[in-house]
Design a protein around this nucleic acid. Structure first.
Lengths: 215, 215
DNA sequence: GTCTATAAATAGATAGAC
DNA sequence: GTCTATCTATTTATAGAC
């Protein structure tokens, strides 16, 4: 495995192909042969650039977590109030999912397997993402602009709908296609706005009459 | 494949073993050999009872969807108001997930693969479950006890947190174990109550919760 | 860096004895 | 119904030429 200094063209083609295949079929169901064909390289080239199928897989996951974590931490560091931060986090999360369509399936499968392919490094990155979102919520609770809530439950009440709505899109499409009942879709803007509204309502203090909350 | 009239002992052992293995490892990563060993039967016995690995897998998924669908439809048929029905649906969904620990991982993986292993029959069952929950919401909207909401977005705002909180439990445990940050857990009762509260707040008509906590 | 060829292990599925 | 033995295909991974 050569030093990862320069992202050679074949290397990035391998990564792109692997991301799509792992996303569509999962780790076990994806063969190195298929990745090679899709990347238009020979299978041996994959083992030249990555020590194993597992290492290739993990490297893809790690890249995403790093990028997403940096983006979210940038938002949390802004000098606006917790409600605005939360809106921005939701907005960024939806757009991040839109930008990397292979991430969601990979993430769901990791959950299903209890994070078997995740090492301490990856777990730490995930923990960081959780810390950002639930940190903003805690910040709001402390400032009394949010009601006291269970941090993890509040966190998953925000990212749960977001993730599951996007994740079910292909199955909903198949249901629609099979002429079963109609399950309406929603574009990104509608989704973002809905999640933001639900989050606001979830976190609204008990008797929030004319509270002037500063952002 | 013998007629499925009498659930023979070996057959049910095969199903139980397969459910655990498919849940833990997924379809592709689970070998028929492993299922056979776990069920304490020979591999050939599996092909005596089921036409293929795929048929065994699908049969397990279908059983769960049928049972869950019947349970939920029973609730929707009750003669109580939409808010109470929704509370009962949430309660039942959480308990159903608790009762069948292998279902959630299997469900997540199906989402990740766009329902590749699901035929028209299974898709129809899933559509039925969606119809029940979003039907109760629509009932409440019509009766003006719920505010008008996007049916699918409201649906996934309820089952999303529920599913994702439970699904992330193993990864959260690993993060805790790896001495990363502390992500608090919650028992079923707390989870149920939280989801019910969020659902109520999401669906409350305009007057009860101010729409502006915006900063 | 890129290829061909192949090793070594394992997969799903079946034949046929009992 | 249950087993042993096996066929065939595919898998990850590597050796070695260029």
């Amino acid at each position: 495995m050569p030093p990862p200094g320069k992202p050679s063209d074949t290397r990035s083609r391998i990564i792109a192909a692997a991301a799509e295949e792992f996303g569509a079929r999962g780790f076990a169901a994806t063969s190195v042969d298929v990745i090679a064909r899709r990347a238009r390289v020979n299978k041996a080239m994959i083992y030249y650039h990555f020590s194993s199928k597992q290492a290739l897989y993990t490297s893809i996951l790690r890249d995403i977590y790093v990028a997403l974590g940096e983006q979210l931490q940038g938002i949390a560091a802004q000098t606006v109030g917790p409600p605005r931060k939360l809106d921005a986090l939701i907005h960024t999360l939806v757009q991040a999912l839109d930008a990397r369509t292979h991430f969601l399936p990979m993430f769901l499968r990791e959950l299903a397997e209890g994070g078997r392919h995740l090492g301490p490094q990856e777990l730490s990155l995930i923990a960081g993402i959780f810390a950002v979102v639930s940190g903003v919520i805690a910040e709001g609770v402390e400032a009394k602009v949010f009601r006291p809530v269970h941090p993890a439950l509040a966190h998953f009440s925000i990212i749960g709908p977001l993730i599951l709505f996007r994740a079910t899109a292909p199955v909903r499409a198949r249901i629609r296609q099979a002429r079963q009942i109609e399950i309406p879709d929603a574009d990104s803007a509608t989704l973002i706005q809905h999640i933001q509204t639900v989050a606001r309502r979830m976190l609204a203090p008990e008797e929030s009459h004319e509270r002037n909350i500063q952002g």
